[in-house]
């Protein structure tokens, strides 16, 4: 299966849920990451069950807190 993850085309073996992709991509603190698939934001509750489809465009959005201090 081919996915476009953070703008980069990559191949993955077999079917993957969002949770599994987060693990494969070694995303730090996955419980605080927002995921968008094909420009739609996915509810956190659906990460375990949402199966990615061939060609999906996946983006990870991270909390970024700095600025003032």
């Amino acid at each position: 299966m081919e996915l476009i993850v953070s703008g980069v085309k990559k191949n993955y073996d077999g079917a993957l849920t969002v949770t599994q992709l987060l693990a494969v991509e070694k995303v730090a603190t996955p419980e605080y990451v927002t995921v968008s698939i094909n420009e739609e934001l996915v509810d956190q509750a659906a990460f375990e069950t949402h199966l990615l489809a061939d060609g999906d465009q996946v983006e990870f959005l991270y909390f970024m807190g700095g600025g003032r201090g």
């Binding site: 603190t29 605080y32 909390f63 807190g65 700095g66 600025g67 201090g69």
Partner: peptide, 10 residues
């Protein structure tokens, strides 16, 4: 996120 779960630039 819960306090201190995600680093800030400090």
């Amino acid at each position: 996120p819960p306090p201190d779960a995600v680093p800030t630039c400090r």
